[in-house]
Simulated scan of single mutants.
Amino acid sequence: MIPLQRVPAPHRTQTLLQRWTTRVQNAGATTTAARAEWKKASAPKRHVKALLESMAHGAVRCMYCDDSRGTDIDHFQPLASAPLRAFVWENHLIACAWCNSNDKRERYPLAPNGTCLLIDPTVDDPADHLILRFTSCLYEGLTSKGRASIDVFGLNRPDLLDGRTRAFTTACLVIEGWHQRHLEGDPSAKEKAHALLESPFVDVVYSLTRLDPDIAETVLEARTLPALEAWRSVCGTTPTP
């Protein structure tokens, strides 16, 4: 997962969403009412999906796994527990069908104090709660929120481990190639950086740039280290070109 910037919904969209929230209220403010209204809400869905796609990484990647294309509007807090948040803009994220329907579903774990135990990438920096171990490409939870998110979002499922393993190798090679071109003043260096930052599993690149230098020496090849340092100084530590 990577941090994402939520864009403000235009006034027209907010008005439309509020109108549909009123419909849920008038229908009884139940989960059944929310689902029925959401099913009919073609115009609000178009507005919300367009906004979410403008926020998503690369070719509209899933905001949870960062691999598959985001196709579904996910209610971060599910309708089962918050029917009146069905049309709240801040409660929407874009997810792939697998993450939305097979892993997360309607799970929404809470801490004893009632706060949510899932990472919202538009509110939280996932790096505060998760660390990617490059020796295994497994995510490890640094906090209770991180551990719950690994479970609910299925962040360590086998297909994602395989993808992150390949992405790690690719990222190192691309960063090395970018570095050489950068040193030569080759303008194509910028294109290489952009391509890497638009690729699937950009969370691997994000984690690389934030890797502790002492750990980097143990998991990266010697020729990758200076390239990564240059990348940090030029491209920063955020997953944006």
Score class of each variant (00 low, 15 high):
133 R>L: 10
59 A>M: 14
84 L>T: 11
83 P>T: 02
147 R>D: 03
145 K>A: 00
135 T>F: 10
136 S>L: 06
134 F>A: 00
59 A>D: 14
84 L>V: 09
101 S>F: 09
120 D>N: 14
54 S>D: 11
43 A>S: 13
127 A>E: 00
85 R>N: 11
55 M>A: 12
31 T>H: 15
154 G>R: 00
147 R>I: 04
68 S>A: 09
125 D>R: 08
57 H>F: 05
51 L>Q: 15
29 A>C: 10
95 A>E: 12
67 D>G: 01
155 L>I: 00
52 L>Y: 11
35 R>D: 15
155 L>F: 05
118 L>I: 04
43 A>L: 15
80 A>D: 06
145 K>T: 12
131 I>F: 07
59 A>T: 12
109 P>H: 04
29 A>N: 15
150 I>H: 02
143 T>C: 03
132 L>A: 06
115 T>I: 08
82 A>F: 12
155 L>W: 07
81 S>G: 08
87 F>S: 02
126 P>N: 08
32 T>G: 08
144 S>D: 08
52 L>A: 14
88 V>W: 14
60 V>E: 06
89 W>F: 13
149 S>F: 00
65 C>A: 04
57 H>G: 08
106 E>G: 03
110 L>W: 02
105 R>S: 08
150 I>P: 00
67 D>T: 07
73 I>C: 12
74 D>S: 06
48 V>P: 11
103 D>R: 05
32 T>M: 14
72 D>P: 09
148 A>C: 01
47 H>P: 13
149 S>Q: 02
107 R>T: 09
132 L>D: 04
48 V>M: 12
51 L>W: 07
68 S>D: 09
101 S>T: 07
130 L>C: 01
129 H>A: 02
117 L>I: 00
31 T>R: 14
153 F>W: 00
136 S>K: 08
85 R>W: 15
44 P>W: 15
82 A>T: 04
45 K>M: 12
42 S>A: 11
91 N>R: 08
44 P>V: 10
112 P>E: 04
55 M>D: 10
153 F>H: 06
137 C>N: 11
88 V>I: 13
100 N>C: 05
104 K>T: 05
107 R>H: 14
94 I>D: 06
28 G>T: 13
72 D>K: 03
147 R>K: 07
108 Y>C: 11
87 F>K: 10
96 C>P: 09
98 W>V: 13
112 P>F: 01
66 D>S: 14
140 E>T: 07
80 A>H: 01
71 T>E: 13
74 D>W: 03
75 H>N: 03
32 T>R: 10
58 G>S: 03
102 N>M: 13
133 R>Q: 10
106 E>T: 07
91 N>H: 11
105 R>Y: 01
119 I>Y: 03
81 S>F: 13
47 H>N: 15
68 S>F: 03
